[in-house]
Design a protein around this nucleic acid. Structure first.
Lengths: 217, 217
DNA sequence: ATATATTTTTAGGCAAATCTAAAAATAATT
DNA sequence: AATTATTTTTAGATTTGCCTAAAAATATAT
């Protein structure tokens, strides 16, 4: 598989997690940062290789084979992210671009040895699950902080938006994976929250709250 | 720089270590496993980017800029090899192909952090020198085992041929980097040697002896 | 239900990296 | 020095992945 094919599979995979129907050509184009016509071309190629199911004008979905391939790319991406953070002291906002390259390195032996070296982690530095060697994903029940009720106590377990910008904001506010978050007040006007983060009171906008995953305790 | 451009620079670099004149088009083609006409095309591209100096029919040589780029690729290749062997338990005959992919990952931060993580090694698992971040290479005085005189004592410090085949042969004979090698006899008929490797007597063909680097003690 | 807007596909092209086959330059031989 | 052999370059194609612009299909709105 080429670099480009892998990126398409990954994009389709990520999009299909939200959209239960076929994934739109345009959505893929936006994610890959290319044009709809290019997407159509590539989709045909992937369909011929039996990696996606494709009906003209009806969007695409991954075949079992395509799904496994996509998961393996995600697996590699997230394992490399763990490596960068745990072993090479990268911060969680610096790992994405490098992992985008590393995910295409093609060696089962490498990735399984790396997995073992890291102690078979189940989550990446942003709290996203890491598929195991069989493609199985341990699904965890997390919800958005914005969905919590008043006075609910929770622990931060992930981020929905993992852009460098957002992650740096969290660093500044000293919100990290594992932080305890308790909702003290909800402002109905703008849906902002007053919360205790590790015991410290702070104000959190709705936009922030709807990009933070927590598990209730 | 593209993947392909990097591979050409690396090939020219390796060939120029032996050939002091311009590097031949055909030699590059053989190393890259492509055709002379393809090489000519690429050389023109590299010359326009000021990475090589090129005169029609006279071969190519690296510019200062091209040389540094080439060394950085070699640096990455060899650091990854160290990582694979030291951290992921690869054997020295398994690392080459994976390192060929990893060497193209493009992040200065990554490679310098990796370097530090590995303890700033100066040699790869085959005894080849690792350029530092500035491109400097610690040159060591090693010679081929085949060049040694009778009764000379030495330590194995590297291999000239690092093909999997040869490395596996060395494993089988229990010859490794660091092994002591003393020449007991030289057979003039076929230039084979009788040597003591870590005290054990064995017979070594000329072909083997001329692919093993040693330093005398 | 028809008209309008949006999405998707097709058609035709372009750039990168490769190839084959032929031509040109250089090297080797008699 | 002239001929032959080898190496290198050019010319013209091919493949992959992408593009723009136009056409076709689907979705939305009046």
């Amino acid at each position: 598989m080429t670099y480009s094919e892998e990126n398409y599979l990954k994009a389709i995979y990520h999009l299909s997690l939200f959209q239960k129907k076929g994934v739109n050509t345009n959505a893929i184009a936006k994610m890959i940062d290319s044009k709809a016509s290019s997407v159509t071309d590539m989709i045909k190629k992937l369909a011929e290789k039996n990696l996606v199911k494709y009906q003209k004008y009806q969007g695409v979905s991954l075949t079992a084979e395509g799904l496994l391939e996509a998961k393996m790319i995600v697996r590699k991406h997230r394992l490399w992210e763990v490596f960068l953070v745990e072993k090479l002291d990268f911060s969680w906002d610096e790992v994405h671009d490098v992992a985008e390259e590393l995910e295409h390195i093609n060696s089962e032996k490498l990735i399984n040895k790396l997995d073992a070296f890291l102690g078979f982690p189940t989550e990446d530095p942003h709290g996203d699950p890491i598929p195991n060697a069989k493609g199985e994903i341990k699904k965890m029940d997390k919800k958005l902080l914005s969905e919590l009720k008043l006075n609910q106590k929770s622990i931060c377990v992930g981020v929905k938006d993992s852009s460098s910008n957002f992650l740096k904001y969290l660093d500044k506010q000293q919100i990290a994976l594992g932080s305890t978050i308790e909702i003290m007040e909800k402002e109905s006007f703008d849906a902002s929250l007053i919360v205790l983060v590790n015991g410290n009171e702070m104000n959190i906008s709705h936009k922030i709250a709807s990009n933070l995953y927590v598990k209730t305790v």
